[in-house]
Nucleic acid binder design. Structure first.
Lengths: 346, 346
DNA sequence: ATGAAAGCGCTAACAT
DNA sequence: ATGTTAGCGCTTTCAT
């Protein structure tokens, strides 16, 4: 099968290249008859127009960059897989390709600048939040961008996010309904807004139920230089050194739940017998952890899909951006939580 | 900053476009003096040549497709992250972009065929092994491909792999040196070659030490429709229903170790007190599992890097392909293994 | 060593 | 409704 082109197709169909281009791009201005004829030849020859030629001529790349934010890399690993898969599918459907860029850091956006300079990027999606350097680089060159699963309160960029306050509330309510009264909170300090949004949901649930929130039970992990589970474990160990453990702990995400459980075990406590642990995310490994995690499902795939749709609308000038909320999924009930009455604390 | 082009640069430098093109591509045939002059203007203007124009003119895309094999998706998730990151970096260094393709399955390679037809793909790397449909699609269009971390004995395609037999031997030796004598093997049946390669290493280590290999202790999980940890847990439960548990189990990868541990716990056994568990891979979560996994490190990043280098060499006609072995990394000693003497079985 | 010019395969403005 | 033609920004052949 020798390489086809619009020109050859046009000759075979006995029309002009323009006409072929028109039918390929579904433009009007060609009679139903010729359209059929051209379509038949295209089909027959298995012709697919050369994307690079189209790129050059239209001055756009039909490429979307996927940027993995450098912070909390481990966090991303666990969460981003489903997101990116969904994003790739959606992008393909819409005629874009997804180009993976190396992780940016706060000092280096070279490969991004390079890709933009080359004209290889029509837009970008970034996992979680966008670092200032990356944002500046994008702005400067007028490349639209959307953040997926932003953790920031009012981000200056378009984003897809979830109602984490509501999710936290939901999850704490579950604990309360199960009879737990001594409930602690474990957040991640390097994500201050996310920390707060979850804390607000936690506070709302507890005050609604007239539950006391003890001082030492609002815990925060600082994952500077380490990773979420390890930082969380350390924070837990420090916080609970000389205080009675709660009967349940709400963790802002699965990874910190893993750290918390690991710390609890280290303290000689058993989950869920002595302490129940609940969290948000439902990353893949949650199901196989011991004990399997009871957690609120976050639809990472849906976020990926929506991010591409939003980005596309922005590129096409149909949207100004803004924040799009995705509903949180259902509570996945597994084994890290038991009713207070069945626990060793009752 | 208005959009630059070779033409404008050439005018600013007082030379012809050809000359500018020559210096950009480091071709000879331009005097040191003019080269310097041109370089200065390029630098001054921050000029980066338009990739799409180059693509059209050179009839190549400078794009490498990254294809995630549809099988054992979960397996990939856990392992592929470091691989792909490294591949992206290496590719960028060499002037390629990485384009992510949706997961192929055995019936559908549409998006791949589309990308090839468009002329958007110079080559492809695929995670683990290459399914026949994908391979056929690639072959037909003459697109070079390399498999990363192939599990097959003599694959018909170029690949990067590891000496799994040697790794298995290594790991079993460790168990034996720690005094274990009743050692079982857990493999994954849907990867028959990989199952065998590990089994050979296991057999070699055990026979060298004159250890008896009991019939029921060569176990295999079939992950049809499920995932590795779950399949493994089921296989373990079935195999150990009416036989004495071994004092140690070698699992062909971390995910099956997670399944095994989960099954052991379900049987009321404790790891490592009652049974030691060792495996191969060192995926991220191994460190945070309870207990943290003792496992042989596999350098997933190195594999990603090498795959791009090999692919590049093939594209450039400098290599015929073949199989490249990567050394296995060191044994990462954590808490899932203890000396036999310290176990409850002694 | 340097330059003129053709061409890569498409799109789109402009005829007809 | 259809065709002619001029680019898009590079590479490369062929003169000089």
């Amino acid at each position: 099968m020798k390489t086809m082109s619009i020109k050859k197709i046009s000759m075979l169909a006995g029309v002009s290249p323009t006409t072929v281009s028109f039918v390929i791009n579904n433009k009007k201005g060609v009679s139903e008859e010729t359209r059929k004829k051209v379509l038949r030849v295209i089909e027959q020859e298995g012709f697919i127009p050369n994307i690079n030629s189209r790129r050059l001529s239209m001055q756009r790349s039909f490429n979307i960059a996927f940027i993995n934010s450098e912070s909390y890399a481990m966090f991303s690993d666990a969460f981003a897989n489903n997101t990116i898969k969904a994003a790739v599918c959606e992008a393909n459907k819409m005629g874009y390709s997804i180009t993976l860029l190396p992780e940016m850091n706060l000092k280096n956006t070279h490969s991004l600048a390079q890709a933009i300079g080359q004209g290889n990027i029509d837009g970008a999606v970034v996992m979680h939040d966008i670092n200032p350097l990356v944002f500046a680089t994008l702005q400067e060159r007028n490349i639209p961008v959307v953040a997926i699963d932003s953790h920031i309160q009012n981000p200056p960029y378009p984003c897809i996010t979830m109602d984490y306050e509501g999710g936290a509330y939901q999850v704490c309510r579950y604990l309360i309904d199960l009879g737990h009264r001594d409930i602690a909170y474990m957040g991640v300090k390097s994500l201050p807004d996310f920390y707060l949004r979850c804390l607000m949901g936690y506070n709302r649930a507890l005050s609604e139920a007239d539950l006391r929130i003890r001082a030492g039970w609002t815990m925060g992990a600082s994952d500077d230089g380490t990773n979420v589970p390890e930082a969380t474990r350390n924070a837990l160990l420090a916080a609970l050194r000389d205080s009675e453990p709660p009967s349940a702990i709400f963790c802002c995400n699965d990874l910190s739940a893993i750290g918390v459980i690991s710390g609890l075990v280290q303290m000689g406590l058993s989950v869920p017998r002595d302490v129940s642990v609940i969290s948000i995310d439902n990353i893949t490994v949650s199901e196989y952890f011991i004990p399997p995690l009871t957690t609120l499902h976050v639809d990472a795939a849906l976020m990926g899909e929506k991010s591409i749709q939003l980005l596309h609308d922005i590129i096409e000038g149909r949207s100004e951006g803004g924040t799009i909320y995705v509903d949180y999924g259902g509570l996945i009930i597994r084994n890290s939580v038991i009713p207070y009455a069945q626990s060793s604390r009752a």
